[in-house]
Design a protein around this nucleic acid. Sequence first.
DNA 1: AAAGACGGACTGTCGGACAATAGGGCAATT
DNA 2: AATTGCCCTATTGTCCGACAGTCCGTCTTT
Lengths: 271, 271
Amino acid sequence: MVMKKKTISAARPRRAGAATTAIPESTDSASMFDPVERAPAYTKVSSAIEHKIMSRALRGGDVLPAELELAQQFRVHRSTVREALRQLESAGLVTRPPGAKRMIVSRPEAAKVASGMRHALVLHEVSFVDVWEAMMVIEPEVAALAAMRRTQADLVTLTQTSEAFRDSPEGDPDSVNIVALFFEQLGAASRNQVLVLAKQSLAQALAPSLARMIDTVPQARARITDAQKRIINAVRDKNAEEARKWMSKHVRDFKRGYEVAGISPDTPISV
Amino acid sequence: MVMKKKTISAARPRRAGAATTAIPESTDSASMFDPVERAPAYTKVSSAIEHKIMSRALRGGDVLPAELELAQQFRVHRSTVREALRQLESAGLVTRPPGAKRMIVSRPEAAKVASGMRHALVLHEVSFVDVWEAMMVIEPEVAALAAMRRTQADLVTLTQTSEAFRDSPEGDPDSVNIVALFFEQLGAASRNQVLVLAKQSLAQALAPSLARMIDTVPQARARITDAQKRIINAVRDKNAEEARKWMSKHVRDFKRGYEVAGISPDTPISV
DNA sequence: AAAGACGGACTGTCGGACAATAGGGCAATT
DNA sequence: AATTGCCCTATTGTCCGACAGTCCGTCTTT
């Protein structure tokens, strides 16, 4: 009754490895052989599926075959498929709509990507100035683009958001989110997905410390409201140069705020 | 002999769900209840570990406990832990050094994050102009920063890379990588992690089509070599303004190249 | 001391099992 | 007709248990 495994597993393709004990990095002695390619099955499965998705053979919205069927197709155990699916899931390539059974193919949303970037920034102990510097590079240009391409609808949502911020109560922990939303909407108005993605990461990374800053510096709220208003006006007038200028001031103001709040520019951004 | 599971599983904490049949998205009728929190165990496990990592309770380089031990601590089965680990693995938060047993905590590397972003860009069918536009925003500023902060060592590597490109044979499929490397090194010289991360994504996304462009447009190689040389000179002289200007020209040239190669600016970037 | 042999600790993968749920269909009820 | 109850199947979430492959440190052997 115990032999079931022995025989089968001997015939089954196991690992490809032949393991050079300890894998010395040295390639100094004439390298005759390439390092043997060794990847766990779950990785192979996940990259096979990933490929299908990236090459658009599987398109967003398609439902993935059931785990068992995948397992049969790949000739691996269901657990192995599941591990592969978990990878794809955390990469945002597949998703399960809440309360649904099957996985569907999905495109990684901006928020997803941004959170990956935020992880990286936090763990690399990137300092506040670095993020700020990146904002100084990106935001003014985004504002300029937004000024050129905005629609009437953009203008409306921007205005609403700005007013929501102005009217948000003093210690409201949601204020930061509104500020972030303003930036996000401005990004949307720029009609450039790429910049939106990049911006969002920065906003996410900055949010926690920004919250502290706003709560610490009394005049912060007023200054932000004012800057937003001027930016909106520039965007309304399709005045790119003006939008760029005010956004530049606005971002520069953030740094001033940090200084006033006594937060060192070298503070690593945190969770 | 079959009851072993029944009893145990009844005592074990199962899903928390109570499933509102079909989950209507409507929140229009006065929402009295919050949606019941329903997350699979593997998710809870992975976010528990993720938290420990993000809060730096587990720091980069630490070895994670063995799967079995984790399973015992979380009181779940090893398979469940494994699924959680796969998520963290593809997020780049944990890694297994080739040929090592235990997982170690790691910081997501730039390449990792960039590839996530590339997925997103490709799947959102972002067009070439969008990426190009983002480059137009970022690269010149990076060049300027690099000019201000470069060290002697940066200068050396940049020069080497540029020469490597100049000397790379006509149809060498590696040429693009060298171009990308030049950008990457310039990013490194800017001493800003954040921008490096953003740049790398763009470079990755652009690489495939750039390769085609270089191979199609005869004068491309010469123009790139020339631009690189001028940028290096500006960086050498710590002349930020000049570096910005030439990088701007350089990137603009890419677009011209695409036009000459007959690639439409609206082509979605691809794998 | 170098070269093996040995055993324990882990991972990769598998087979198998069972509970819970989604989704559909069908009948009973209102 | 709309609602509700009930059953059935496909599929996921989780677990148990097992074993081969591999890493690594220790103990022999030469």
